[in-house]
């Protein structure tokens, strides 16, 4: 962070490093134009559409029992997915940054996987694995467990899509902190758990928090994968994004955008928290 300060100073003090004011102005205007078209306009549209027919209709759309059950299912999914991914993220990042072992490169590559694999495929693989047509699926079905077209399927598909988020936040952070503090704790007689709780965890808590928030946002907003495994049973296996889609395809735009506005709030909150966390880290 030290370097950033000196850089900011240099940008201002060294005119040779700065572009011509006209170039600056053009680029800044272009950036604003781009953001206007791709960020501000869509955001504005959501609220314009949502409140198009007044606050009453907006509230009605949100208070709709089907909408509420979608919210409940979405929150339940996030409540299961985020802690599991947090534990995975911390252990994976811990293993990758503090130890060397066989298969480390493979593990790191796997962390890129959900970015490259289509969410539709993410849903499909679980249908193929545990759908009613497969042996595992029918065995589970015989024991009264239904995964596909029901809540467990939604949870598992969301797990797949979001599993690396927390690990990816933590790895660069833990790498930059090195392992000296942990080694110092060990030579002072601390057990593994004590070292983790007293030394490592406080050092990574902001990164962990941001990773968890990002993971929450993604698990709430996941559409493609969930769409494949949910079966779209209204009031049963509908998440918020799926509900938005159904309303939209029924030409019920106001309700659709009203529900979507909840998701927009969540997204903006995520970004705000990220900015806050970064400021925290920056100040240290």
């Amino acid at each position: 962070m030290q370097t950033n300060h000196t850089q900011e100073a240099l940008i201002i003090t060294n005119p040779n490093r700065n572009d011509h004011p006209a170039v600056q102005l053009i680029l800044i205007l272009l950036t604003f134009l781009f953001f206007a078209g791709f960020i501000f306009l869509p955001l504005g549209l959501v609220f314009a559409q949502a409140f198009q027919k007044g606050t009453a209709l907006y509230l009605e759309a949100i208070r709709d029992p089907i909408a509420i059950s979608a919210v409940k299912l979405t929150l339940l999914t996030a409540a299961i997915v985020v802690p599991l991914n947090a534990v995975f993220g911390v252990t994976a990042a811990w293993a990758i940054t503090k130890f060397s072992f066989r298969g480390k490169t493979l593990l790191i590559s796997l962390l890129d996987l959900p970015f490259a694999v289509s969410p539709v495929i993410a849903g499909l693989i679980f249908v193929l694995l545990a759908g009613s047509r497969t042996s595992l699926g029918s065995w589970l079905g015989d024991h009264g467990i239904k995964i596909i077209f029901s809540t467990p399927g939604i949870v598992i598909a969301t797990l797949f899509v979001t599993f690396p988020f927390i690990a990816r936040e933590l790895i660069p952070l833990m790498e930059s902190q090195g392992r000296e503090e942990e080694e110092a704790a060990i030579t002072l007689g601390a057990k593994g758990w004590q070292t983790f709780r007293i030394i490592t965890l406080p050092n990574i808590r902001w990164g962990l928090m941001y990773g968890m928030i990002l993971c929450t946002a993604r698990s709430i907003g996941e559409f493609g994968a969930v769409s494949v495994v949910s079966g779209h049973i209204r009031g049963m296996t509908n998440t918020i994004p799926l509900h938005v889609e159904i309303l939209y395809s029924e030409y019920n735009y106001t309700a659709s955008f009203a529900v979507a506005s909840i998701l927009v709030f969540l997204a903006l909150a995520t970004i705000a928290v990220k900015a806050l966390v970064e400021k925290r880290v920056h100040n240290q």
């Binding site: 080694e183 110092a184 060990i186 030579t187 007689g189 057990k191 050092n203 240290q284």
Partner: peptide, 21 residues
């Protein structure tokens, strides 16, 4: 013996103080 049972004091090049304590 694992490091934590050796009872040796170790002073690191870059101090390795616990920054949150």
């Amino acid at each position: 013996l694992p490091a934590r049972e050796k009872n040796v004091g170790f002073v690191f090049q870059h101090y390795a103080l616990f920054r949150r304590l």
